[in-house]
Amino acid sequence: MWTPDDTYAITRIDLPRVGTHGWQVRMQRRGRRYGKFFADRQCGGTRRAYEEAKSWRDRLIEELEEEAGARVCLKSVRNSSGVVGVSKVVVSASNGASYHFWQATWCPAPGERRCVKFSVKRHGDRQAFQLAVEARREGVGMVD
């Protein structure tokens, strides 16, 4: 489990003309948006509003991490495999040859990215895909 820095997903909102002052928490995961505003006045001051926002954000992240894992999604132009983090890749060499792979990608920590490819020529299309799905599942920590 990663620990967010103090300001991750938290923004200060000050709109003096309309009397709005507080902290806004906004995040998006799996296409769903989460957000909550913590007004200085209702929370008992700027510092307490920030602490409540930070606490709410941390609980939300914890809940979302418990639900995390390799997801199956609808096939689209951006995702032809139907599995998040798994894609088919074609590499063209300078001699004109093409190499086909199934690739798994994941982020083990913020700012880090991991990738592994499985050759269709070596494993066959179906097996290379399965290996990529398993690698992705293990990479995001979903070992059965």
Rank of each mutant, 00 (worst) to 15 (best):
M27K: 10
E138R: 14
P16T: 03
S80A: 12
G124C: 05
S80C: 07
C43F: 02
E134I: 09
P16F: 03
D125Y: 05
G96I: 06
R136V: 09
A39H: 04
V86E: 08
R26V: 12
V25H: 01
D144N: 03
A132C: 13
Q24K: 14
M27G: 10
L74I: 04
A68K: 10
T11L: 12
H100E: 15
E65Q: 13
G19L: 00
E52H: 03
A53K: 03
S94E: 15
A93C: 06
G31C: 01
A68V: 03
D5T: 07
S81G: 04
P16W: 02
V116I: 11
C107F: 11
V72H: 02
E134P: 02
P110K: 02
Q127L: 06
E62K: 10
H123R: 01
V143G: 11
G82A: 05
Y99R: 15
T20V: 15
P108R: 05
V143Y: 06
V91K: 08
Q28T: 14
G35N: 14
S76M: 11
V18I: 14
S98I: 01
S81N: 05
R29P: 02
M1V: 14
D14F: 00
R78P: 02
G124R: 07
I13L: 06
N95I: 07
S76E: 12
H100Y: 15
M142Q: 15
R137M: 08
A39Q: 03
E134H: 09
L15Y: 10
R29Q: 11
Y8V: 12
R33V: 09
R114M: 11
V120M: 13
W2E: 14
P16R: 02
C107H: 14
V83D: 03
V120R: 12
D144V: 04
G124T: 05
F37N: 02
S98E: 09
H21D: 03
M1E: 14
D14Q: 00
G82W: 04
Q28S: 14
R137K: 11
E51N: 08
R71S: 13
S119Y: 05
S98H: 08
Q24T: 03
F129L: 06
V77C: 02
F118R: 06
W102A: 08
K75R: 14
V18K: 13
A49C: 04
W102C: 07
I10D: 07
S87C: 12
K88R: 14
R113A: 15
R30Q: 09
H100W: 15
G141E: 10
E62R: 10
V116H: 06
R136N: 09
L64T: 02
G19H: 00
V143W: 08
K36P: 01
V83N: 05
A135N: 10
I10V: 10
V18L: 11
H123T: 00
Q103M: 12
V89H: 09
G124S: 07
L74Y: 06
D40C: 14
S80V: 11
D6A: 07
M27W: 10
P110Y: 01
V77L: 11
Q130K: 09
G85I: 04
G111Q: 05
A128N: 05
N79G: 00
V72N: 01
V89T: 10
S98P: 00
S76R: 12
M27Q: 10
Y50P: 01
T105H: 09
R47L: 06
A70S: 07
